[in-house]
Design a binder for these strands. Structure first.
Lengths: 157, 157
DNA sequence: CTTGCTGCAAAGTGTTTGCATACAT
DNA sequence: ATGTATGCAAACACTTTGCAGCAAG
């Protein structure tokens, strides 16, 4: 059962370079993240894998996610509900890769947006460049999040 | 012992308007947050208060912080180490209020910066305005965080 | 007075760790 | 072969909750 094809060689290669092993659970985590554009929690991922792979354990999910984050294949987000969320960085999906988040502080709903990314990128690039010089900091990612009330929660305040 | 003066009437007023009581523990939390420009965790705040107020309890700290966040007096941040951090929004301090964060993904160090805030504000305002229309979302705050490696951790990678 | 707030302790929740076993290379 | 990765269960760390007593308005 080879769930991986041509595109996966990117991942396979990354693993080889780092000296890590591309195991069944790790493939499964990548598959799940690759199949969705949602912000999955460790539990979401566990449940998705568990359907077809009963032996998967939570510890492996967490260890794999940490690894993927360290390898810069996955982004970790905190939306304020106590659990971390994960998103693939290099994706094969047809949705825009770079986006940011609108988070409802009442119901926790998260909306992805990728409007204004171009203008934003220009400014962020400049800021990134200057900040890394000023603070001698090697920046490799950024997050922008807007907090507020979504359409449904707005009225009830 | 009245730890509060003229400026505190702003807080007192806010509490009165909402119908909340300005109690000793709540004053203490505000005092601690007001005295520093650091990003304090619930435990930091507990310890600071505990020095002079032995009866303070963790539950109260957490409940107070939740309240202050809901009242928009305090911002809650997650820097990825599992604990929430808190910062006063309306401060009397001499440091710039609006700032963002550089977070070292290795040692967890957090650097505040307030460079480029003007240009940034212009763009963010515009984005905020358009997004709130497009997604029917009432935005009341945003966070921008850069992740990477600080000067000390850069070499070791 | 009255109702909201507090402190305590216990319970929850998400995440991490130790260790023997299994497996990728 | 050999050293890494896994699964399990127990341990952790942070946060939340229930409740009887306390205190702010």
């Amino acid at each position: 059962m080879d769930m991986f094809n041509d595109t996966d060689s990117i991942w396979a290669e990354k693993f080889r370079v780092h000296g890590y092993r591309l195991t069944k659970p790790r493939k499964a985590v990548l598959m799940v993240l690759n199949k969705t554009s949602k912000h999955l929690s460790a539990e979401d991922i566990y449940l998705a894998i568990h359907r077809s792979y009963k032996d998967i354990g939570f510890a492996t999910i967490y260890r794999t996610l940490d690894l993927l984050v360290r390898m810069n294949l996955v982004n970790r987000f905190e939306f304020g509900d106590g659990k971390s969320r994960y998103e693939l960085i290099y994706e094969r999906k047809e949705v825009p890769t770079h986006h940011h988040h609108l988070i409802c502080r009442k119901c926790g709903k998260v909306i992805d947006y990728s409007d204004f990314i171009e203008e934003e990128t220009k400014l962020i690039d400049k800021i990134e460049c200057e900040l890394s010089k000023k603070y001698d900091f090697e920046i490799d990612r950024h997050i922008i999040q807007f907090y507020g009330l979504c359409d449904e929660c707005k009225g009830e305040e």
